[in-house]
Simulated assay, not measured.
Amino acid sequence: METAPGPTVLTPPAATAQLPAPPSVHVRAVITWLAIFPLVTLGMMASAPLTEGWHPVFKALALTLVVVPTAVYLVVPRMMRAHASLSRRRPRA
């Protein structure tokens, strides 16, 4: 009769690099705002001729359908990487 093997325990290697702490919620909020504000501004200016007679709710819907995915998938991740890179270079006091 065979016995079932015990649970597999994964142990990290001894020389694991320490992961940097994620930025605070306040830093993430500022980075997100810095991404959203220019996208909304450019989106409003670019869509103004196309959405001239639209109800404001539909204008906001069309704008956010473009701005939110652009910010979430493209702009904010790049800005977060840039922030991480800059904060790694800055000497700690």
Rank of each mutant, 00 (worst) to 15 (best):
F58C: 14
T3C: 11
P20T: 11
R81M: 10
L61H: 05
P13C: 03
K59Q: 04
H83Y: 15
K59A: 01
V25L: 14
V76C: 06
M44I: 10
P20M: 15
A4W: 11
W54E: 06
P7V: 10
L50I: 08
T41D: 06
I36N: 01
L65R: 01
A17L: 15
T3E: 14
V9L: 13
P38S: 10
A82K: 03
M79E: 02
L19H: 02
T11N: 06
K59F: 02
P38C: 10
A48M: 14
P23C: 12
T41P: 01
V40K: 02
V68D: 02
A48H: 14
F58S: 13
M79P: 01
R90G: 01
M44T: 12
R92G: 09
R81W: 12
M44A: 14
R89F: 03
A48P: 03
L19I: 06
T51K: 00
R90W: 15
Y73I: 13
T32G: 07
P12K: 06
T11C: 07
P5C: 07
L63Q: 01
G6E: 15
S24I: 10
I31P: 01
A46N: 07
W33I: 03
M44L: 15
A62F: 15
I31K: 01
M80K: 15
V40E: 01
E2N: 09
P69N: 00
P13W: 02
M80C: 05
S87N: 05
L61A: 15
E2H: 08
S24C: 09
F58E: 08
M45Y: 06
M80W: 08
R28D: 02
V9Y: 07
L63K: 02
A84G: 12
A35Q: 04
R81D: 05
P5L: 10
G53H: 11
V68N: 03
V57T: 06
A21Q: 15
G53R: 08
T16I: 09
R89C: 05
H26M: 13
V25P: 04
L19K: 05
A60G: 03
T51I: 13
P38M: 09
V25R: 15
S85R: 14
H55I: 05
P49H: 06
L50M: 13
A93N: 13
R92A: 15
P38N: 09
R90C: 10
T8Y: 12
L34P: 00
S85G: 11
P56H: 01
L42P: 04
L39A: 12
P23N: 11
L61G: 11
V67R: 02
L74Q: 07
G53F: 10
S87D: 08
A29F: 03
P7G: 11
P77L: 10
L34F: 00
V76P: 04
F58K: 14
Q18L: 12
F58G: 08
I31Q: 04
P38A: 11
